[in-house]
Design a protein around this nucleic acid. Structure first.
Length: 725
DNA sequence: AGCACGCCGACT
DNA sequence: GTCGGCGTGCTC
């Protein structure tokens, strides 16, 4: 008999422990999924450990003090994870203060994750020849049999088709046997491989510096277009040739198709692509390819960091500042932290690349925790010319509040030259609020404390938090006034304004509303690339890695819209957005231009952003962070409690905060009220301190008490939160 | 998390 | 009198 410790599929901090089950099957191993009966329900569990016992079920139950149940069945033939990955999951749960099972679920592709919602693995019928001694066969039969023998195995369908006349007969004669095998659908592409490019002297210097760097982690700070990718590729080549594996991480594959293309052109069938756009079957196949060493390079998004590498030689994290590297749901891990952990295990280098590094990373580089390598020259072209325009001044002069006269003239100029324009506005929908001009009534989501956005296209009101859709009223629901109108503007209204201002102009709009279907990103970008539109209007998703040679003007319509006082990182995010968006302009030999429209252009983020002056921005912003003792000078942990009952929530949040206040080594802020989401009230307790381990210990302790006292509120912990909203 | 058990209000 | 609301407790 085996006694096993099992993690239950329910991802809740309240059930974050192993449960003990018995198993009669000797094949049970750590890392397998099992079916167990848990509180009268059939659930999937994940095996943490197995030990031998010789007691019977009754004496065991008596000794342990609870009724031990038997495992119903085992789902897997072999352990799903390597020891490294299993330990990584436990480490991640501890680091992010999240349920262990949620870490296993995050690591494994959907097809094999420990959850009842996991999908079935697709199987196919195959045939192979049996060992036989001299049987008499006709010529045709012999031919078919020999063919199968030399190929070892064949798809049943193919076998029957190719040897229509004899295949059935041979099967009847018991010379071939059928078996099942996992279906493989991935299509081999015939690519023309390209050779490495000649590095410029600056690139060569940078590559050498990375190689000779004593630190394990190197921050590669290179302006857009300075050729970071070529350095990654050539370093990857050397690693592959030495027989080791390479992981290249990108923020979002659909937005950076160039990177995938270049890696594929360089390494061909050695490459696996792993990202959220793949369906479950495709993901599973890529996972298996890596697991069985059939590829040596993986290009992927955040979750690719969990691929089952056995001998990793290099990790590249491109655009390391990008916020999508942090998962915003249950294990709220940062991909960068997982990278560093895996790199330690595999003893390999990590390159963090960006034109606008995160303050956290750059601060570490300054402190020599990371190595720092800088590329300051653009390879083929000069940087675009950036102009700031004050929308406040423009509005005083009676200009359009969306597109100022300066931007308007530049668009006309580029349009007449048949060059392309990108307009960035970080707000989707038609307008963010419906408001009554008479009584001031604003229409709110019935389930969340946020205003509903007006979507003119679908003629409805949408909640951007929970997705609720409501019909539009003609009059103010409070005072029945007819001055009931949309206020502010989003991409839909901007597009309307562009058509109104420039009759006959062709536009494409790219935001969450136009990219919901599969491969929508690619289709929109391809259309723009074929010059089917003069102007591309979009949210921040168009600020990342796009590379269109004919784009010579980028307009950031509302550059300071993201600056709010509630989030200390909003200035940094705005800086990234401005510089990344500017980098889309003038990428070929044509001189590019950027117009930044802002309500207050005197803000330092606009000045340094316009000048593409990272260092000045870094110094200034770090000073503010120091004065407000915010990261990177301190660490933060955010604990959000939620409950449908507000009174309950308030009292439980206060108790929770009190448990944390036991130490004077760190500050406990709150509980403070957050806006309601999906009918649940939320409160946040924030802790801030210099020692992250201490903070984590305190939260672990308070979470344990929350559980012990059986508080009913939901708990969600975010260690090193990137956003506070 | 998800479910059974149990105690009080508004119905046939 | 019962149906069903959701507060409470438990899960190897």
């Amino acid at each position: 008999m085996k006694l096993a410790q099992i993690w239950i599929e329910h991802a809740s901090l309240k059930l974050n422990q192993t449960y003990t089950y018995l198993c009669e099957d000797d094949r049970l191993k750590r890392g397998m999924r099992v079916f167990v009966n848990f509180n009268g329900r059939r659930l999937v569990g994940f095996v943490e450990s197995v030990e031998n016992v010789c007691e019977d079920i009754c004496s065991l139950s008596a000794r342990l003090g609870f009724n031990v149940k038997k495992i119903e069945s085992i789902l897997d033939q072999e352990s799903l994870l390597t020891d490294e990955l299993h330990e990584l999951a436990l480490w991640m749960a501890e680091e992010t203060i999240s349920p262990v099972i949620s870490c296993f679920q995050a690591m494994l592709p959907n097809k094999i994750k420990p959850s009842s919602s996991h999908q079935k693995i697709k199987m196919e019928r195959w045939v192979r020849s049996k060992e036989v001694k001299d049987v008499k066969l006709t010529v045709k039969q012999k031919e078919a049999f020999e063919a199968l023998k030399t190929q070892h195995e064949m798809r049943l369908q193919q076998w029957r088709e190719n040897y229509k006349s004899v295949s059935k007969k041979l099967e009847e004669m018991n010379l071939v046997e059928q078996f099942e095998k996992e279906a493989v659908y991935h299509k081999e592409q015939n690519l023309i491989l390209k050779n490495d490019l000649q590095l410029t002297s600056e690139q060569k210097r940078a590559k050498l510096e990375i190689e000779q760097c004593t630190q394990q982690v190197v921050l590669l700070h290179g302006v857009t277009g300075s050729g970071k990718t070529e350095i990654y590729l050539q370093m990857a080549r050397e690693v592959i040739e030495s027989g080791r594996q390479v992981l290249i991480l990108v923020p979002e594959i659909s937005l950076t198709p160039q990177m995938v293309k270049r890696v594929k052109e360089r390494f061909g069938s050695e490459v696996a692509i792993y990202h959220s756009g793949l369906n479950h079957q495709e993901k599973y196949e890529q996972y298996q390819l890596i697991r069985h060493h059939q590829v040596s390079v993986v290009v992927g998004t955040r979750s690719a960091v969990f691929m089952p590498f056995t001998d990793l030689g290099l990790i590249v994290m491109d655009e390391e500042h990008d916020q999508s590297y942090k998962q915003d749901s249950m294990p709220q891990y940062h991909c960068r932290d997982v990278c560093l952990k895996r790199a330690q295990y595999h003893k390999c280098k990590v390159i963090l690349g960006s034109a606008t590094p995160s303050l956290d990373s750059y601060a570490r580089a300054v402190k020599k925790v990371y190595g720092l390598v800088t590329l300051s020259e653009r390879i083929n072209h000069s940087l675009p010319k950036v102009t700031c325009v004050s929308t406040k001044e423009a509005m005083k002069k009676g200009q359009s509040y969306m597109i100022t006269d300066v931007l308007k003239e530049k668009i006309i100029e580029r349009w007449s030259k048949k060059e392309q324009v990108i307009l960035l506005l970080n707000r989707r929908g038609y307008s963010p609020v419906m408001k009554c001009a008479d009584c001031g009534e604003v229409l709110m989501c019935p389930h969340c404390d946020v205003a509903l956005s007006y979507h003119k296209e679908d003629h409805c009101l949408k909640c951007h938090v929970c997705g609720t859709i409501q019909p539009v009223f003609r009059h103010c629901p409070a005072c029945h006034s007819s001055h009931w109108m949309p206020m502010g503007f989003g991409t839909q209204k901007l597009e309307e304004e562009v058509h109104h201002m420039f009759p006959g102009i062709k536009t494409l709009r790219m935001d969450a509303d136009t990219t919901s279907y599969k491969n929508a990103h690619q289709k929109l970008l391809d259309a723009f690339g074929r010059k089917e539109a003069d102007v591309l209007i979009g949210t921040q998703m168009i600020a990342k890695g796009l590379d269109f040679p004919d784009v010579t003007l980028v307009g950031v319509v509302n550059a300071d819209a993201g600056l709010n006082h509630t989030d200390f990182r909003s200035v940094e995010t705005t800086f990234h957005l401005i510089v990344q968006a500017s980098g889309r302009s003038g990428r070929s030999e044509k001189q590019g231009e950027v117009i930044l429209q802002a309500f207050d252009p005197s803000h330092y983020v606009l000045k340094t952003g316009a000048a593409n002056d990272y260092l000045s921005f870094f110094q200034k912003e770090m000073e503010y962070r120091r004065l407000s003792s915010n990261p990177p000078y301190t660490y933060l942990i955010s604990v959000v409690l939620s409950d449908a009952n507000q009174q309950h929530l308030v009292s439980e949040s206060q108790r929770f905060a009190q448990w944390l206040r036991s130490s004077s080594e760190f500050k406990v802020l709150g509980p403070s009220e957050l806006y309601r989401i999906q009918d649940r009230y939320r409160m946040r307790v924030l802790i801030k301190g210099k020692n992250l381990t201490q903070l984590k210990d305190a939260v672990h302790y308070a979470v344990a008490l929350h559980r012990k006292h059986q508080l009913r509120s939901g708990l969600s912990v975010d260690v090193n939160p990137l956003r506070l909203d």
